[in-house]
Design a protein around this nucleic acid. Structure first.
Lengths: 123, 123
DNA sequence: GCCTCATATAAATAACTACTCATATAGTAG
DNA sequence: CTACTATATGAGTAGTTATTTATATGAGGC
């Protein structure tokens, strides 16, 4: 592996991180999830204007974060690699830590949740 | 967890992603790695100006991506959560796929490295 | 063909970001 | 205290980005 490859890999990674580093786009990615969603669905879920959603979807498309598929008058968007979600959840866990997770929290036990409520686990 | 928490979690995640979504900052984070590096070391490793490195380090510090510790005249920076590296490597693997890894590849065996050299593993 | 719905694109702009250059602060040695 | 090294900060700026408004394209039904 040449040094140049490393640079390019870093840059490619940075590009994707930047694309996801906008809360509107991140929200869109999370709302697509493992599924496939039409623009209208995304618009409704996000509360953003159709134009703005299309704008962000284009950026995500060009960064190859999402894929499109036409279905009649609809264009359905899905994550190019749904495994992205796991990475995002993991990062979210790291960042939001004891503050719980993004979306429906998948695994915290009742006991753990109780600790969080009392602030006991927050140090 | 209220809906508001979700929004805040998403925003916090986006903020960190944005911080890492600049190739200079990402490079700095990767060059710090599991270690602790002085500003001068980072400057030398990155080839960026001291001012620019300090500028980016401040952004990373304020996003809590890095921590500082003073040692005499030096200020050493380290990743707040070194596990961040694994997440970045995983994402990099997803993105750069068969195109090899970032930095010194941590784990590929000799055999694997040989395959990579011949391009055999690149499909 | 025309109408409607779904989506994309273009242009304009305000806000933000990375960067440079100059300067300041802080630690250590003498 | 002075000199030197290490690091941070402030001001200025060019370039980028998110957003809005207006308009275009494209598919399906009539």
């Amino acid at each position: 592996m040449t040094n140049n490859d490393t640079i390019n890999n870093t840059e490619r990674l940075a590009r994707v991180l930047k694309v996801l580093g906008d809360s509107n786009r991140l929200g869109i990615a999370l709302s697509i999830g493992k599924d496939s969603r039409s623009v209208t669905e995304i618009v409704n879920a996000s509360g953003l204007s159709q134009t703005l959603v299309s704008f962000h979807l284009r950026i995500m498309r060009e960064a190859d974060v999402v894929r499109t598929e036409r279905n009649g008058p609809f264009i359905h968007y899905s994550l190019s690699d749904p495994a992205l979600l796991e990475v995002l959840f993991e990062l979210s866990r790291m960042i939001n830590g004891k503050r719980l997770r993004i979306e429906k929290t998948p695994e915290p036990t009742v006991k753990r949740a109780a600790e969080l409520k009392t602030g006991k686990a927050l140090k």
